[in-house]
Design a protein around this nucleic acid. Structure first.
Lengths: 244, 244
DNA sequence: AAGTGGTCTAGACCACCAT
DNA sequence: TGGTGGTCTAGACCACTTT
């Protein structure tokens, strides 16, 4: 484990160095998801800076969603929950305030292939590197609403194809089985119409509207570790976003 | 103009009260878009709190995008620029790093009608209230990429229909001519296929993919003042978003 | 009672900008 | 040179949680 010290002669502000150091400790699994980290006073002693500087650094990390704090309890490593934000985008069979249901998954294939150039570029690999390619249909209340293609660097996820992925979500598996917590992601949305295969899998007429969502998921260290494309039924897809 | 004072016996933190007071002054047009507000020291004297508390309040307002600060210059009221974030969603004829071009507009209609129930609800009006309804085609390099329907409460925007809206953006007009700066917005995205009319206006085949974006735009005081629906060409629409 | 984070103060010093 | 925001300190007091 690499330890970062605070360099008082560095031009970079002390609180920013503390931010980096704490991120490093999380990356190194010194502190893991959900764990309480050291208190303000302990951190101040450890880094030999004032409590105020620690407060500033922690507020930055809270702002970035890496930590959360509870008065009287402590400061904890946040567990980002994509399943929530994901299912929120779909209104299929959902009524106001209804508890969101975990979608089911039916895997169609899982195989190791050489990386296509587009995928290799997005995942910062060399074209031809081993890629685990999976295809699945996602369902809510037994009704298919989404077809997904998922590409993973095989060197990191060796053996994932042998696991029983029945009703489990993928991101907790990335985290628990492969020490690869997903921390953030970017998505590209584009409207499209259903091809014969997709229409068949989603049980909708050919050429009816579908939403194409391409996502690249990243670790704490901003390493891209998953590329996926989802084709969602147009009539059940409604993406909500607040600007500023 | 209503003046807010700081209540030291209030349970609400002082910095939060300062945040409210500054927001109020902006709402009251005491400080307007782009204007420099009082310095930290002046604010501390004015509100009779410490500079540290002012710093905390200002950092909240910067976080919310209401203010921006420049070392050595001062603290200013931010001018949100939706045109930038808007055009970013479309890749039509855009190459990497190319300067974004302001879309042209061709108005098809502008008339005052009684508010449809759905629009009235979204704009917090009574069904039947006067609504200014406008329809336009937006173009980039003379090529249509988007059809828009815009609904505005007529009581607030009386006379807008008589302005020459040739190549101007709407939000600066809302701000300058109607004292209604748009501060934030929410959008709902859904894929669809082009009807005959939309296909005709966009010069694409019927039933080809389009992105339907419904937007509600709000003021500083969270009053909804515009409802619009944009139908964008599927092949030129690519929405990018970062999650967390 | 002890420990945590949340608020608030009063100051110091610095980097940056305008004049 | 004087005013601005940015960083950092050392402390006080409070609200909340756990034991």
């Amino acid at each position: 484990m690499t330890v970062k010290y605070i360099d008082f002669s560095d031009e970079k502000p002390l609180y920013a160095q503390v931010v980096e150091a704490i991120k490093q400790k999380i990356s190194d699994n010194y502190w893991t998801l959900g764990m309480m980290i050291s208190s303000e006073n302990e951190l101040a002693k450890e880094f030999d800076v004032s409590v105020g500087t620690i407060k500033k650094a922690l507020s930055v990390l809270v702002q970035e969603g890496i930590l959360y704090r509870r008065q009287g309890r402590g400061t904890f490593v946040a567990s980002p929950d994509f399943s929530k934000s994901f299912s929120r985008f779909f209104r299929y069979g959902q009524f106001k305030g209804e508890a969101s249901e975990v979608p089911g998954s039916q895997f169609l294939s899982a195989e190791v292939i050489p990386a296509p150039t587009e995928i290799a570029a997005a995942l910062q690999l060399v074209a031809g590197d081993d890629i685990l390619f999976m295809k699945r249909v996602r369902t809510l209340q037994e009704i298919p609403f989404c077809v997904e293609e998922i590409y993973l660097p095989y060197s990191r996820f060796k053996g994932l194809e042998n696991l029983d992925l029945g009703k489990k979500l993928l991101y907790p598996i990335y985290n628990q089985n492969f020490s690869t917590p997903i921390f953030w992601a970017e998505e590209f949305l584009q409207p499209d119409t259903a091809t014969g295969e997709v229409a068949d899998l989603l049980n909708i007429p050919m050429n009816s509207p579908v939403m194409c969502v391409e996502r690249i998921a990243y670790t704490y260290e901003d390493i891209p570790v998953e590329w996926r494309r989802s084709m969602g039924r147009g009539d059940s897809f409604r993406y909500h976003i607040v600007i500023r």
